[in-house]
């Protein structure tokens, strides 16, 4: 099985600080891979390197077996890699439909679109409505509603739906439940599983152990700038994971990177 992403020997230095120290990374088809680590362990650095937000100093990244070198997240996005940022990257005053299509708008066919560059708003609205309905996210009449009038969970839903709609390779989610209440977190977790069920693998960065252990197929534990180990959540407990993560316990030898 070719990994969707495989990275080997990634190094990223910022001055004297080594954020990523010869780290490896691997995402398999159809899985939810949780990335956990203490603050400053470099878990977001490695994910940033994979999606093109930063360019690593050393190492190589393969997407479906082919080497890639992204210079911006836009390039990664063109390959079908979507990111749900912690702050969601939504424009509050724009509508749900506008937000879903930011940067990849559909234009009207023919003269209107080609020369007057007119947007095909009905097409975008229909598509946005379809995607949100597929994920069980909304009643249909409010697609033109500005995002700022939505609750936190609804906004998260829009961001996840946007990613799910356009991701053909995989989705990166950065702390998707961090800002949410119990009930809204639950909804987002269901949504994440729903996206996996559609065959799109997900990289989930999270601090929330119960959430990680609930949805993840494998857990990548990051410590001191490199991958410490990968564990199966069925074989270990949350306290084991925390112990590995903080260095309180030696990682299982067979998985050590």
């Amino acid at each position: 099985m070719t990994p969707v992403v495989s990275a080997k020997g990634i190094v990223k230095r910022y001055g004297h600080v080594t954020a990523i120290d010869h780290s490896d990374f691997e995402l398999l088809p159809g899985e939810i891979l949780a990335v956990i680590g203490d603050n400053g362990a470099g878990k977001s650095s490695i994910v940033k390197a994979i999606c093109g937000a930063t360019t690593p100093d050393e190492g190589e990244i393969l997407i479906e077996g082919k080497p890639v070198k992204f210079s911006s997240p836009i390039e990664a996005r063109e390959m079908g890699i979507e990111i749900v940022y912690q702050n969601l990257a939504l424009s509050p005053a724009l509508s749900i439909a506008d937000n879903m299509f930011t940067g990849r708008e559909i234009r009207k066919p023919g003269f209107l679109g080609k020369f007057l560059r007119m947007l095909d708003k009905p097409a975008m609205e229909t598509f946005a409505r379809e995607k949100l309905t597929e994920l069980g996210l909304m009643t249909v009449q409010s697609i033109k509603q500005p995002v700022e009038t939505l609750s936190g969970g609804q906004r998260q839903g829009v961001a996840v739906a946007r990613a799910a709609a356009f991701a053909s390779k995989f989705i990166i989610m950065d702390e998707p439940t961090a800002a949410l209440g119990v009930k809204e977190s639950r909804k987002v977790l269901e949504l994440i599983k729903d996206v996996r069920a559609r065959g799109i693998p997900i990289i989930l960065i999270s601090h929330n152990m119960p959430h990680v252990f609930e949805v993840a197929d494998r857990i990548h534990i990051h410590r001191l700038g490199k991958r410490l180990c990968i564990i199966d959540p069925k074989d270990y407990t949350m306290s084991d994971a925390v112990a590995f993560m903080t260095g309180a316990k030696e990682p299982p030898a067979q998985d050590a990177a």
Binding site: P73, I74, R77, I83, Y85, N87, L88, A89, L90, S91, P92, A93, L94, N99, T102, G103, R104
Partner: peptide
């Protein structure tokens, strides 16, 4: 609206 969000959602 939000410069950072615009940048992240792929606007130059």
């Amino acid at each position: 609206d939000d410069m950072e969000a615009a940048e992240m959602s792929g606007i130059r």
